[in-house]
Write a protein that binds this DNA or RNA. Structure first.
Lengths: 345, 345
DNA sequence: TTGTAAGCGTTATCAC
DNA sequence: GTGATAACGCTTACAA
């Protein structure tokens, strides 16, 4: 538990000089620098973060705020953030938020109380104004997957929902499949809105009529997907050629419903999900892949850069998706996915 | 950004008194207490953590160390930890460890540098002696799923691997299935060893001969499960009545291999996994369920209790599992799982 | 280039 | 009960 003073004693230099060697690329003789460094090593000296924070206002900590999660891919985002943080030598103060009051308190604690040097928030349902008011410009904030208002307040990292959905639909259209059923999220969900728009654009780009598409609203859950599809099928409507669900869970739920009615995938209809989760992989489900780790990594780097960089205009980074094609869209004769003989589903 | 002094000025009391009101259940007149509290509220005063840490050595932070994860259920553990931390008013400093050097540095930073009041580690491959040496009794440490040596050094929270595996095997034996193939993890993996032992115990308890059981070593991955099973099937060996894989991923890999050979589950053989992940749920896979959130919650609470509690003997908490029965072990005539008509697989 | 010394905002030990 | 006051361990003007 050596302190700065121990290093002083051992070297004969003042605290100022030691501090200079340790922190700033300041004017210090190469000779003194070496003497200090040697002493530091020999004494096994480690600066105390608490003292540093108090005197220098640097926490070396990145605050991260997540919604209460049951959501597998948030871990991926977290890993990406962790990678960026590690590269910058920062620690991660992670908080899940359960309710708005808790979120506000977390924000105050991270920002005003000086527990972090920057904050990354993911899918937070607080307006920019509210966040700005709480944080009060004490630390930079980066939003991941921010909703609604095209934030001119904070840096934003978002998924390219539009092109992601469009690519899935285009893929189907290219296969000659036009009779598509869209299983969406809640009507007021930003991701869902963008994905719906992407689907529409794909039709328009192909010169096809989007109004023939069936749109069913669900809630992003497995059960929701299953129930909506069951209802649909039992209402006597005709089977679509393909279902494009706006996330994997609903896709898997829909799959269950479809199979329960005796239909097969991809035999009777094609199926596409969104997110490309592990479950999609194992189920052989074609899905729009979102590079969650990259998103975390980029968001964290954006935040880190803002720590000592001058305030520039808020930037928006849109992360592109790709389509992971698997058996759920591969008719046996198409033959391209793995183990086509049993279609993985 | 009011400070303690501002509260002093406003109330006329000294820093000592304010601090007493805020921290200790100390001797303070009810009247002064109220005056101080009012001023605190009015000034919107929030004590700075940095100053507290420096002067009081309390960080109000719980350190959490995870292995680099691609592992969905670690999130669940983290949620459990978060719940416990929130209840205790603690923040979470989370770190993923990539290599041993990084882990050691993290440990030093969390413990010696005083960044946390207690540490929860999950599946760390460092010996107790090493950890103890690094942490040097500065903060309490709790291990989750600790390996090997029955740690008499730290509190431990572990999965009841033995009974978990035994329950799965017993379930099969009760169905009259004895010709079981075990798909294990690496031979030196502690979880795997315990699960194997549990399987053996189940046979012995049932008075059956364990030596007839086929044991195939794999590596806990989907690919591993698939390859080992493919090799097995192609070697011309007879099909077992059931496969019990020591995690869900291998189970799903084995399923793929089995289906590729034209067999059906549960028609031709039963299949059981371990962990009960989301993928198991969607695949209709019977699996040994491990309450990951509980594990995190209990571990964190253990750690939190140690913060100001006297050092007692290290305790070990063994979390019990349960069996999630699904279609992969339900022959059509058994009829009990959901949508039996297509077996969910 | 290096040293002096004044903070940073608390906690806690003494006295009173 | 309450108040001075000395830590806590570092950063950083300002001097030298």
């Amino acid at each position: 538990m050596a302190t700065l003073y121990d290093v002083c004693k051992k070297t004969g230099f003042s605290t100022a000089t030691i501090s200079r060697v340790l922190n700033r690329k300041d004017v210090v003789t190469e000779k003194t620098r070496q003497i200090v460094l040697d002493a530091v090593k020999e004494l096994n000296y480690r600066p105390k973060p608490a003292a540093r924070m108090l005197a220098g206002h640097k926490t070396e900590t990145l605050g991260v705020i997540f919604p209460e999660i049951d959501n597998g891919f948030y871990v991926q985002v977290l890993r990406g953030i962790d990678n960026a943080a590690k590269e910058a030598g920062l620690h991660l103060l992670v908080s899940f938020y359960h309710d708005k009051a808790g979120l506000k308190e977390t924000l105050l604690s991270l920002a005003l109380d000086g527990r972090s040097d920057a904050i990354v928030m993911i899918n937070i349902d607080l307006s920019d104004r509210q966040v700005k008011k709480l944080v009060n410009d004490t630390v930079p904030v980066v939003m991941i997957g921010h909703s609604a208002e095209t934030s001119a307040t904070f840096d934003v990292v978002e998924i390219d929902n539009t092109n992601g959905a469009a690519s899935a639909v285009t893929y189907l259209l290219n296969k000659g499949i036009e009779n598509i059923l869209l299983l969406t999220g809640p009507a007021d969900n930003f991701d869902s809105i963008q994905r719906l728009n992407g689907a529409k654009l794909a039709f328009e780009d192909a010169g096809k009529d989007f109004s023939t598409v069936t749109i069913i609203e669900s809630n992003f859950t497995y059960e929701g997907g299953m129930e909506q599809m069951t209802d649909y099928l039992e209402s006597g409507k005709s089977l679509p050629e393909a279902i494009f669900a706006f996330n994997d869970r609903m896709a898997l739920g829909a799959l269950e419903a479809v199979k329960a009615k005796g239909y097969t995938v991809p035999g009777d209809l094609a199926l596409i999900g969104f997110d490309d989760t592990e479950s999609a992989l194992y189920a052989g489900l074609t899905s729009v892949q979102v590079p969650m780790m990259d998103i975390g990594y980029e968001a964290a780097n954006l935040a880190i850069r803002r720590i000592d960089a001058q305030k520039g205009n808020p930037s928006t980074l849109t992360i592109t998706t790709s389509l992971s094609v698997r058996n759920s869209t591969q008719r046996p004769q198409d033959d391209a996915g793995r183990s086509p003989s049993n279609c993985g589903i």
